[in-house]
């Protein structure tokens, strides 16, 4: 017996360490079977379980107890058992429940993507495209809040918030003296600082990166540009407070904003400090590494310079065309 447990997700088996969540096991497999996650954040302890987009069906509990679980479970907070069988995209029940969750997440969302800074890199937008309905069935006035400033660099736009609690966990776990949290209850609960206290510490800017929607935005970048017109570049600097590993977002020769580097699940690799994020906006502050890899699926890659401009010689040669098929498809796709 190895100390690993075997779990089968949508027919694909993998052995993972005991105590791994179903979501993380799925992420180890990768690909389409990974459930979407809006509130879970692997770097934040206690996150997850709230948005319910990652729900999956456990069709076999474990080798010892093969009964299926009675309800759909949140994959981010359910640990795998040996011999567990999970259905994600192969279960119509899960797909339907997930589209229900997406619809419910969107009923009070303002859907102001055209004027939202997050558009193009928004988890909720992606989720809406993948699982949402084309039209809302909600015919009532949406819940609205006043915009508030938390600190001089961050703006909170509660209308767009999906209450994933990520920013609360971030503020709680990577900085001390947390001053913001959830006020009120039910659908009028809001993220807020009590009586508009400013969030003032070296790492407060990370709440912008962890926010899956456009509720927390960088005031130094607000309305400066759309993300798909900017070019992301990985860079680093010698920072005394943080790792200094960032992504710079260029428009022409100007650095419009600085964010932490994100992995394929939109999670920050290493948290960065406010000095790097808000104050170092010149190319000479940074050592450029290479262009950031952006997924083909992302709208940001639509005019990304990783896409190959086919040389004239390729265009006339069928053999070379076949050899460069993947790259050529990218150009024609956009």
């Amino acid at each position: 017996m190895s100390d690993k447990v075997k779990v089968t997700i949508d027919g694909i088996s993998i052995e993972v360490a005991p105590g791994t969540s179903i979501l993380n096991a799925a992420r180890q497999i990768g690909g389409d079977i990974v459930p979407p996650a809006m509130c879970y954040y692997s770097k934040l302890e206690g996150s997850g379980g709230k948005c319910r987009t990652c729900i999956v069906k456990v069709s076999k509990g474990s080798e010892k107890d093969p009964r299926p679980m009675p309800k759909l479970v949140a994959s981010c907070r359910t640990t795998v058992m040996d011999g567990m069988e999970v259905q994600n995209i192969t279960s119509p029940e899960v797909i339907e429940a997930r589209s229900g969750v997406v619809e419910i997440l969107l009923i009070n969302h303002p859907l102001d993507c055209p004027v939202c800074d997050q558009a193009g890199e928004c988890d909720l937008q992606n989720l809406g495209y993948e699982h949402g309905l084309q039209k809302t069935r909600y015919e009532f006035e949406r819940r609205t809040f006043e915009r508030i400033d938390i600190g001089d660099k961050i703006q909170l736009h509660m209308n767009r918030c999906i209450l994933c609690y990520r920013c609360v966990f971030t503020a709680d776990q990577i900085t001390n003296k947390r001053v913001h949290g959830i006020l009120n209850r039910g659908d009028h609960s809001e993220i807020s600082t009590y009586i508009q206290t400013a969030v003032d510490n070296d790492f407060s800017g990370n709440v912008i990166d962890v926010c899956p929607v456009g509720a927390l935005t960088d005031k130094t970048f607000r309305f400066r540009n759309r993300v798909w017109f900017t070019k992301p570049v990985d860079a680093h600097r010698d920072c005394p407070t943080c790792s200094g590993k960032v992504t710079l977002w260029y428009k022409g020769a100007d650095v419009l904003r600085v964010t932490a580097r994100k992995d394929i699940y939109g999670e920050v690799e290493e948290f960065i400090c406010n000095t790097c994020r808000f104050d170092k906006k010149k190319t000479e502050d940074w050592v450029i590494e290479h262009p950031t890899h952006i997924s083909d699926a992302s709208v940001i890659s639509s005019n990304h310079y990783e896409t190959m401009k086919p040389l004239p010689v390729i265009q006339n040669n069928p053999k070379l065309q076949a050899a460069n098929k993947v790259e050529l498809e990218k150009t024609s796709k956009f």
């Binding site: 709230k50 969750v101 997440l105 009923i107 209450l163 959830i182 209850r185 039910g186 659908d187």
Partner: peptide, 11 residues
């Protein structure tokens, strides 16, 4: 009385 923690109940 919904606590507002998870989305299906809150909304």
């Amino acid at each position: 009385e919904s606590c507002g923690q998870c989305s299906p109940c809150r909304e």
